[in-house]
Design a protein around this nucleic acid. Structure first.
Length: 585
RNA sequence: GUUUCCGUGGCCUAAUGGAUAAGGCACUGGCCUCCGAAGCCAGUCAUGUGGGUUCGAAUCCCACCGGAAACACCA
C-alpha cells in the first residue's frame, strides 16, 4: 500500500524499539495485507522475530503470539486504527475505515489518469519488440509479442522509466527474394488493395507454396538471390517499393492495436556493419575462421572454459554471407551508443534463450561494459489445441487479420443485440474496442513463461475473466454518472457505515500503484491483468449490493465519488494493458 | 547426452516463504416492477511423486516421473 507509508513508519518504529529492548534484530518484520475480506488493514507476521529470539523456551508460533500481544498494547496509542488484534502470531491493525476511504478516493480523483503511475526517475530503457519480417503476414503468435512488449513499455513508463520503443524489422533474406520473384513472374505491375497486409500475406503464401512444390520456381528464386547479391539496381528498386508496402501494412495493424515505435531498425542497415565487425573479431582472435569449408565461429565454451554451457556461435556463413548473429552484434552496440541506455530489453520468444545468452556473452568478451545490461524478456509461444505449433508451412497459422475481423464481427452482433439504439458508427467503434480487448487480454493474462493455447471459442468468448468483463464494469460506472442530473461531486466525506463490498473496492483501488511497481520490476503485465479483473469483480460486487443514485444524503455523495474513482482505476489498469475502455457497450 | 521452461479441481489460470489455496470456463439450480443480466448468488471437485531446508513450502534445494523447447552455418 504505497499510500500509507507514514502509518507503516510509525508502526516500524514501535516494533524496532520493542526489538531493541529485547535484544532482537530489527528490520525483520514486513507488512502484508490482511487476507480476510470486508475489513481493511495491515498485518505483521511476527514469526521471523520469534525465530530470531535466542530464548528457545517456547515454540516459535507461541512466542510470535506472545510478541503480538505485547506489541498490541504498545500500538494502541497509534491514531487511525479502529481495532488492533493479536491472533495466531500476527499483529493485525484494522484501519479506521472512513478516514482511509477518504484518503484513497481523494488520491485517485486528484491524480486522475496519473493514478497508478510514479514520478520520472530518469532511467532510460529500450524495449525491442514486435520484430516482424516484411513480405510476410502477422499471425496470432506475433500478437503475443506485440501486446506483451507494448504493455511492458506502458508499465515501465508508469513506474517512472524513460522508455524507447524499438522495432527491428527483418527486411532482407530468402523470404523477401521468394516474394519478389513470385511477384515479378506472376503478378507483375499489380498494386496492393486497401487491405495491404492481407494482399502481401496472400502473395507470400503463394510464393512459399510454389517454392516447395515447383522446382522451376525454386531455381528461379536461386537465380534471383544471385542477382540480388550482385546488387542489381532493378531488384533494389523493387525491394524498396515492396518493403514500403509491407511497412504500410504493419502500420495499419499497429494503428489498430494502438502501438507505436520510437525507433525502427532494419536488418538491411546492420548487415554491412556486421560483416565489418567480423573482421575485427577475427583480428582480435576472439573468432575463428573456418572458411571456405566451415563458417566463422566464436567457441564460447573454449574461450570461457565452460562445458556445454555457451556452446558455439556461428557469426558468418562459410560462403561469407550474413546470419542473424552477424547483424545482432552491431545492433546491440548501436543501441547503447545512440541512447546511452540503462537497460536494453529484448522481447523475444523463449526458443532463442541460448542465442540471447550467447549475444550478451559476446558483448562482454568484446569488452563492452554494458553487456550485463542487456536483458532477454522471454515469453512462451502461442500454440493451437492439441499442442500443435503454428506453422505457416502447414497452413496452421491464424492470421491476425482474420482474428480481428471475426472478433469484431462477433462483438458487433452482441452490441447490436444489447444496445440497439446506438448509431452505426458508435456500434462499430464499441465493437472494435471490445474485440481488441478480448483478443489482447489472454495474451498477457498469464505468466510470460506459460504457453498460450489459441482456440476460436475462448478467443471470441466475451464472458468471465476477459477484457469485456472489465470494460463492462467501466460502462456500468459510466452509466451511473451519466444518469446523474447534477454535476458530479468532486469529493465527499465518508461518514456512512461502509459495507464490506465498499471496503473491498477501496482496498483494491489502493493497490494499483504497488501492482504497477511490481509488474515493472518483474516485467509481468500479467500482474496488472489479474489485478484489473479483480478490481472489476470488486466493482461488480459493489454495484449489485450498493444503490448509488437512489441512496440518501451523504451515502449517495460518497458512493458517487467512489464510482468515479473506481472508473478511473479500471480505465488506468486497462490502459496499461493497451486496452481501451468504451463508455457504452 | 547437456541445458532451460512448465506440472494446482473435468478444462484454463491465481496466490512478496505466512493465516481458511483464489478465480474463470464447463455443469446444475436460482436472481431483471429496483443505477445496464457482457452481470450477480448458490453447489461438486485441486498443489505430479519422494526426500530435504524452515517455526511455517504450491512457492526454495535434490532426485524421479510426465510434457514442451534449445543446443555449428533458420531467425
Amino acid at each position: 500500500m504505497l499510500m500509507f507509508e507514514d502509518v507503516k513508519e510509525h508502526l516500524t518504529q514501535i516494533i524496532d524499539s520493542f526489538c531493541q529492548t529485547r535484544g532482537l534484530p530489527t528490520g525483520k518484520v514486513e507488512f502484508r495485507n490482511i487476507p480476510f475480506s470486508g475489513e481493511w488493514g495491515i498485518a505483521a507476521p511476527l514469526f521471523p522475530l520469534a525465530a530470531a529470539d535466542p530464548d528457545k523456551s517456547l515454540p516459535v508460533p507461541k512466542k510470535a503470539q506472545e510478541f503480538a500481544e505485547i506489541l498490541k498494547t504498545q500500538a494502541e496509542e497509534l491514531p487511525g486504527f479502529s481495532r488492533i488484534e493479536a491472533i495466531r502470531g500476527y499483529l493485525n491493525l484494522y484501519f479506521e475505515p472512513h478516514q482511509y476511504a477518504e484518503r484513497v478516493v481523494s488520491t485517485v480523483l486528484g491524480q486522475g489518469k496519473g493514478f497508478g503511475s510514479s514520478e520520472q526517475q530518469g532511467k532510460k530503457v529500450m524495449v525491442e519488440y514486435s520484430n516482424p519480417n516484411t513480405h510476410k503476414p502477422l499471425h496470432v503468435g506475433h500478437l503475443r509479442n506485440v501486446i506483451l512488449g507494448g504493455s511492458v513499455c506502458n508499465i515501465l513508463e508508469a513506474s517512472g522509466k524513460k522508455v524507447i520503443r524499438a522495432n527491428y524489422i527483418g527486411d532482407i533474406g530468402l523470404h523477401v527474394i521468394k516474394w519478389m520473384c513470385n511477384y515479378e513472374m506472376y503478378h507483375s505491375g499489380e498494386q496492393p488493395d486497401a487491405d495491404t497486409m492481407r494482399w502481401m500475406a496472400d502473395l507470400y503464401a503463394e510464393a512459399d507454396k510454389r517454392f516447395v512444390s515447383e522446382p522451376a520456381f525454386e531455381a528461379a528464386v536461386r537465380d534471383y538471390f544471385g542477382r540480388w547479391d550482385a546488387g542489381e539496381q532493378h531488384l533494389k528498386d523493387l525491394w524498396k517499393q515492396t518493403r514500403d508496402w509491407s511497412m504500410e501494412g504493419f502500420d495499419q495493424v499497429y494503428a489498430l492495436l494502438g502501438e507505436h515505435f520510437d525507433r525502427i531498425y532494419f536488418e538491411s542497415e546492420v548487415e554491412e556493419p556486421g560483416k565489418a565487425l567480423i573482421e575485427q573479431l577475427l583480428e582480435s582472435g576472439l573468432a575463428e575462421d573456418g572458411r571456405p569449408e566451415n563458417p566463422v565461429i566464436i567457441d564460447l565454451d573454449k574461450k570461457l572454459g565452460t562445458n556445454e554451457e555457451y556452446r558455439v556461435v556461428v557469426i558468418l556463413r562459410s560462403d561469407g554471407t550474413s546470419l542473424y548473429a552477424t547483424k545482432e552484434i552491431p545492433l546491440a552496440i548501436m543501441k547503447f551508443e545512440e541512447y546511452d541506455l540503462d537497460q536494453s530489453i529484448y522481447v523475444i520468444d523463449v526458443r532463442q534463450s541460448l542465442h540471447m545468452k550467447q549475444m550478451s556473452k559476446v558483448m562482454e568478451l568484446m569488452g563492452y561494459p554494458w553487456a550485463n545490461r542487456m536483458r532477454h524478456l522471454a515469453y512462451e509461444i502461442v500454440n493451437l489445441p492439441g499442442n500443435v505449433t503454428m506453422s505457416s508451412r502447414d497452413g496452421t497459422v491464424v492470421l491476425l487479420d482474420d482474428l480481428i475481423r471475426e472478433a469484431t464481427q462477433r462483438a458487433l452482433e452482441v452490441v447490436r443485440e444489447k444496445n440497439p439504439t446506438l448509431d452505426a458508427d458508435m456500434m462499430l467503434e464499441v465493437a472494435e474496442k471490445v474485440a481488441l480487448g478480448a483478443i489482447k487480454y489472454p495474451m498477457i493474462a498469464r505468466e510470460n513463461t506459460k504457453i498460450v493455447t489459441f482456440d476460436w471459442d475462448s478467443a471470441l468468448d466475451f464472458n468471465g475473466q476477459s477484457a469485456p468483463y472489465i470494460q463492462y464494469a467501466v460502462v456500468r460506472a459510466n452509466s451511473i454518472l451519466r444518469r446523474l442530473n447534477e454535476p458530479a461531486p468532486s469529493m465527499a466525506a465518508f461518514s456512512h457505515e461502509l459495507l464490506p463490498v465498499e471496503v473491498n473496492l477501496i482496498e483494491k483501488m489502493s493497490q494499483l500503484p504497488d501492482v504497477v511497481q511490481k509488474a515493472a520490476v518483474e516485467f509481468k503485465p500479467s500482474l496488472v491483468a489479474t489485478y484489473a479483473f479483480e478490481l472489476a469483480q470488486a466493482f461488480n460486487d459493489f454495484y449489485t449490493q450498493c444503490p448509488v443514485l437512489s441512496a440518501e444524503g451523504s451515502t449517495r455523495l460518497s458512493r458517487l465519488v467512489l464510482v468515479q474513482a473506481a472508473k478511473i482505476s479500471l480505465e488506468n489498469a486497462l490502459s496499461l494493458l493497451g486496452i481501451q475502455s468504451p463508455q457504452v457497450m
